[in-house]
Design a binder for these strands. Structure first.
Lengths: 264, 264
DNA sequence: CAAAATTTTTAGCCTTGCCTAAAGTGCGTG
DNA sequence: CACGCACTTTAGGCAAGGCTAAAAATTTTG
């Protein structure tokens, strides 16, 4: 019985290990837990493979595993996951801001580079960008010490009719969605108003600047927004919290790398 | 019996495979052939491991292997090797010129990134640098089509007394040597004169600008130089050729990324 | 030119990650 | 409360790459 408790994150994790920890962290954030099947789906591997890797990760102190019950990252595992996430998001920011990558193509590139880049390189890139708080898709960048803004946000689908909010974030994993969002100028920092919503989960009319694009509820549910300070909250739907609910681990948001993405 | 002849380089080679092909290419350049032991030493693995990998690479058409005789890259293998070398050298150039890496620390970083970067990323970096011909250590960068300047050069140790040449290249693999060279300002593009050479392989006095550093024969043999056009060649020692010997595969040299390395 | 030294290969084994097929668990529902 | 379904784990394999020890081939040398 080995006692490898909550010490420092080993410097040399394999790429698959980093991917598992990252995926488990993100599942924990979204669903409060990470089931074998969910991890398998997130990583596109067979569930049996996940069971095997989980055993290994548990034995190395990255997570706790109750058979048939799911996994939970230890402090060590969470720090390792956040380190990889920091790398990923700084890489995305750098590729977009400095090398002109469109925002729908940075994910795959960052996904590979995050396992190969040294801490030194990552910090040089962060410095070159002025230490941004969020990546081009609005995802908060953890600090080198593992602090990150874990606030939940409402989605466009949660808004009340007439409500105006600021777009804050969208997943980086769906290139065609990202291309479409760029087309209708729906990007982090932009103000968006819910003009109308057709019944029975029908199309949603937005106002973005002078345009009034109509989007499906499926798209709307993927776009995260936040209240604009000083605007009354006219809640209509049940939703995840927007104002600080859990104690924040990170610092304030705001600065963000300009994303000069080129749709198509 | 599969027929995977001299077609295109498969897009997805593993990192070890890329490392083997690169090492074999470089050994072929230097010694005309690549022996099992040499490859093993270059990659820091056991000779038996090399035998195994060589069998696999031969079966995939990357090289020809005559048991107990050594290996030779096929056209396919050579193209794969040059692709990796191009990535490596563009990465070194970019890290040095754009992110302020000192020239003694780019090798390790490039060594990992070369396996993870996409062609797109590499070409964006090359474009950002104005498509340099050589990396910060003077190594020629192969074109995307696999053309490269394979000229051999003399070393500082080969010079005649009083001869003035231009420093062109040094290996990127020895950080402390690189730091010392930066200290005495002996970098690619710099003019260097052989002032004196003590007998019995003794210390060598150089002139670089206004300085006259004294270096050992061991160091001198690692620094590649080329004749300055219009300077008579006063040969004294046996040496590898300097003027075009083998037909060139690459284009002319010249442009080179500024290396703003910061020694210590 | 045979013995010694060197190089190369074979044999057998290990770890990491992944797979499929089959067996166990847990839970909701009739 | 038992049955069925979904989820999870176990069992058994495979490929890539690496290792050591030992055998075989080649080269060097006395």
């Amino acid at each position: 019985m080995k006692s490898s408790q909550s010490s420092r994150v080993p410097p040399t994790l394999t790429a698959p290990v980093e991917d598992y920890l990252k995926a488990i962290y993100e599942l924990e954030q979204r669903h409060g837990a990470a089931a074998t099947t969910d991890v398998a789906q997130a990583l596109a591997v067979a569930p049996a493979s996940v069971t095997g890797m989980i055993r290994r990760l548990a034995s190395q102190g990255f997570l706790d595993h109750v058979p048939y019950r799911g996994v939970q990252l230890t402090d060590l595992g969470r720090r390792a996951a956040l380190r990889t996430i920091r790398r990923h998001r700084i890489l995305e920011s750098y590729l977009t801001a400095v090398l002109g990558y469109p925002w729908d193509r940075v994910h795959d590139e960052a996904e590979r580079l995050e396992h190969a880049a040294s801490d030194d390189l990552i910090e040089r890139m962060a410095a070159a960008l002025g230490h941004p708080d969020a990546d081009p898709h609005g995802a908060p960048i953890p600090t080198a010490e593992g602090q990150v803004d874990e606030r939940r946000h409402r989605t466009l689908a949660d808004l009340a009719i007439g409500e105006t909010t600021r777009m804050v974030r969208v997943s980086d994993k769906n290139p065609s969605l990202l291309r479409y969002l760029a087309e209708i100028a729906l990007q982090p920092g932009v103000e968006v108003t819910l003009v109308a919503r057709a019944p029975f989960d029908g199309p949603i009319t937005l106002r973005i600047g002078a345009d009034e694009p109509i989007v499906g509820p499926n798209l709307a549910a993927q776009v995260l927004v936040e209240s604009i300070p000083g605007t009354p909250i006219t809640s209509t739907r049940s939703s995840t919290s927007d104002s600080p609910a859990q104690p924040l681990t990170g610092k304030s948001r705001g600065k963000r790398a300009e994303s000069d993405s080129t749709p198509r």
